[in-house]
Write a protein that binds this DNA or RNA. Structure first.
Length: 274
DNA sequence: CGGTGGACCTGCTGGC
DNA sequence: TGCCAGCAGGTCCACC
């Protein structure tokens, strides 16, 4: 579910309502997520005031003052949202943070691929999950020349390369497919064979697709909702992802689907030729 | 070193 | 209706 635009949607949705609030009570399911729960997690959060909410790649960073930051990853199926006192408890809720205005920050994650960690704020770049991340795709450091430099020695196909967070952080399967479609580049093209023109088109397409998705509040496929519980609407704008057999919006030829490095790749064989 | 495939989990869908 | 296979937005690790 959550790729960069979905995490950005959650981040923006949480920032105003929770910044400045104090955590008065914490409970967890105790079920293991991708990492074990931090030692004394509940106790360490109680009484702390939320100072800021930010995003890095697909990680939410919640600064809880006194020099510590909550690192929160939603995995494949995680939802982090605000619930009122009378809202129904989600079926797979693993953490509940009660704030001093009696709102509850609820983390629900059926597949338990999510990650929660507590880390010194001034050491965030050394966190094992954050230290090797490449540039943010919406930042100025992700530009066509950078991309081409990174690809010059990479012989594998461009699609799986876009999912490598060391090269560029936060692009997932949906937006890799959509960006390559928009740039009219074959997902099977070896990275090192992309021309500088193609790199320009690809960087532009990645930015465009991500920005349009953020504007639409992310993509809801089965269950994604923002911090306010509302779904995202970008799935309505998918041009290739999940559209196997449907007509390409440019040439009307059917969209194909293949497995590539274990993940589904959707593409138009006519518009995205090698 | 670079690339692939499996593992981690649960839930949904479609076919029989 | 019920069972089963296949699939899913992410990341890490072992293996070639």
């Amino acid at each position: 579910m959550p790729e960069l635009p979905e995490v950005e949607t959650v981040c923006r949705g949480l920032a105003t309502p929770i910044t400045g609030r104090t955590i008065i009570k914490v409970s967890i399911s105790g079920k293991r997520l991708r990492l074990p729960w931090p030692v004394n997690f509940c106790h360490r959060l109680q009484g702390r005031t939320i100072h800021a909410v930010a995003r890095r790649a697909k990680y939410l960073l919640i600064d809880i003052c006194q020099g510590e930051t909550l690192i929160w990853h939603l995995g494949m199926s995680g939802c982090l949202r605000l619930l009122g006192e009378n809202d129904v408890t989600p079926k797979h809720q693993h953490a509940l943070l009660t704030l001093d205005n009696h709102m509850n920050l609820s983390f629900d994650d059926p597949r338990r691929f999510g990650l929660v960690d507590l880390w010194p704020s001034d050491q965030l770049t050394h966190h094992p999950s954050l230290h090797a991340l490449g540039p943010e795709p919406l930042s100025e450091s992700f530009h066509p020349k950078y991309l081409q430099q990174q690809l010059v020695s990479r012989r594998s196909a461009i699609k799986p390369l876009l999912l490598d967070s060391r090269l560029v952080a936060g692009i997932g399967n949906i937006y890799a497919n959509e960006a390559l479609f928009e740039a009219r580049i074959s997902p099977f093209e070896p990275g090192c064979r992309l021309s500088s023109t193609q790199c320009v088109r690809l960087v532009t397409a990645i930015r465009d697709v991500l920005l349009r998705a953020i504007e639409a509040g992310g993509s809801t496929i089965n269950d994604f909702v923002g911090a306010d519980g509302k779904p995202g609407y970008f799935a309505h704008q998918f041009r290739c992802y999940g559209r196997e057999g449907a007509g390409c919006s440019h040439c009307q030829q059917p969209i194909h689907r293949l497995q590539q490095a274990g993940r589904s790749t959707f593409y138009c064989p006519s518009c995205q030729q090698q």
